Deep mutational scan, measured.
Amino acid sequence: AEIMKKTDFDKVASEYTKIGTISTTGEMSPLDAREDLIKKADEKGADVVVLTSGQTENKIHGTADIYKKK
């Protein structure tokens, strides 16, 4: 799966169907969080990951919607 910015995804959204939401939390780098989200998306058969939230304090927390091409 590839990560797309919401603004970029909005241009092609009609080509995809939302298949779920994924999240990651833990003591990790932003890059590790990104890789974890991609891994989870791949496991669910998603083609595209669109980040919906991200937070960093002591731990990273990120959520994303996942989509499959129609």
Rank of each mutant, 00 (worst) to 15 (best):
A1T: 06
A1D: 00
A1K: 02
A1H: 02
E2W: 05
E2G: 05
I3F: 10
I3S: 02
I3Y: 05
M4Y: 05
M4D: 01
M4Q: 00
K5A: 13
K5L: 14
K6L: 06
K6F: 07
K6N: 06
K6E: 09
K6W: 11
K6H: 07
T7L: 10
T7W: 08
D8W: 04
D8K: 04
D8N: 03
D8A: 06
F9M: 02
F9T: 02
F9S: 01
F9R: 00
F9H: 01
D10F: 05
K11Y: 05
K11V: 07
V12S: 03
V12T: 03
V12N: 03
A13T: 04
A13K: 13
A13W: 06
A13Y: 07
S14Y: 11
S14E: 10
E15F: 10
E15S: 09
E15W: 13
E15P: 00
Y16F: 07
Y16Q: 01
T17K: 09
T17I: 15
K18P: 05
I19N: 01
I19L: 08
I19M: 06
T21R: 06
T21I: 07
I22G: 00
I22K: 01
I22P: 01
I22S: 02
I22F: 02
S23D: 08
S23K: 10
S23R: 11
S23Q: 12
S23G: 05
T24Y: 12
T25A: 11
T25K: 10
T25N: 14
T25M: 10
T25E: 12
G26M: 11
G26W: 07
G26D: 11
E27Q: 11
M28Q: 08
S29H: 08
S29Q: 05
S29A: 09
S29F: 06
S29G: 09
P30F: 13
L31F: 09
L31K: 14
L31N: 13
L31V: 11
L31G: 10
D32K: 09
D32Y: 07
D32Q: 14
A33S: 07
A33V: 09
A33P: 05
A33W: 14
A33K: 06
R34K: 10
R34F: 12
E35P: 02
E35L: 13
E35I: 14
E35N: 13
E35R: 13
E35T: 10
D36I: 09
D36R: 06
D36C: 12
L37V: 03
L37Y: 04
L37G: 00
L37M: 06
L37R: 00
L37C: 03
I38M: 08
I38E: 01
K39D: 03
K39T: 06
K40F: 04
K40L: 09
A41L: 01
A41I: 00
A41G: 04
A41N: 00
D42Q: 14
D42F: 11
D42T: 15
D42K: 12
D42H: 14
E43M: 10
E43I: 07
E43N: 06
E43K: 09
K44P: 00
K44G: 04
K44S: 08
K44I: 12
G45S: 05
G45R: 05
G45K: 06
G45C: 11
A46H: 01
A46F: 00
A46Q: 00
D47Q: 06
D47N: 07
D47Y: 03
D47I: 04
V48P: 01
V48N: 01
V48M: 04
V48G: 00
V49Q: 00
V49K: 00
V49T: 00
L51D: 03
L51F: 08
T52D: 10
T52Y: 06
T52R: 14
S53P: 09
S53I: 15
S53A: 10
S53Q: 10
G54I: 14
G54H: 13
G54T: 12
G54W: 15
Q55D: 15
Q55L: 14
Q55P: 11
Q55K: 08
T56R: 08
T56N: 10
T56A: 10
E57V: 09
E57R: 08
E57S: 10
N58Y: 08
N58I: 10
N58H: 11
K59I: 14
K59Y: 15
K59D: 14
I60C: 13
H61N: 11
H61Q: 08
G62Q: 15
G62V: 15
G62P: 08
G62D: 08
T63R: 08
T63L: 08
T63D: 08
A64K: 02
A64W: 06
A64V: 07
A64F: 13
A64C: 05
A64H: 09
D65I: 06
D65W: 02
I66A: 02
I66K: 02
I66T: 01
I66G: 02
I66F: 05
Y67K: 03
Y67C: 04
Y67T: 04
Y67Q: 03
K68V: 12
K68Y: 05
K68D: 02
K69S: 05
K69W: 04
K69V: 04
K69H: 10
K69T: 03
K70T: 09
K70N: 10
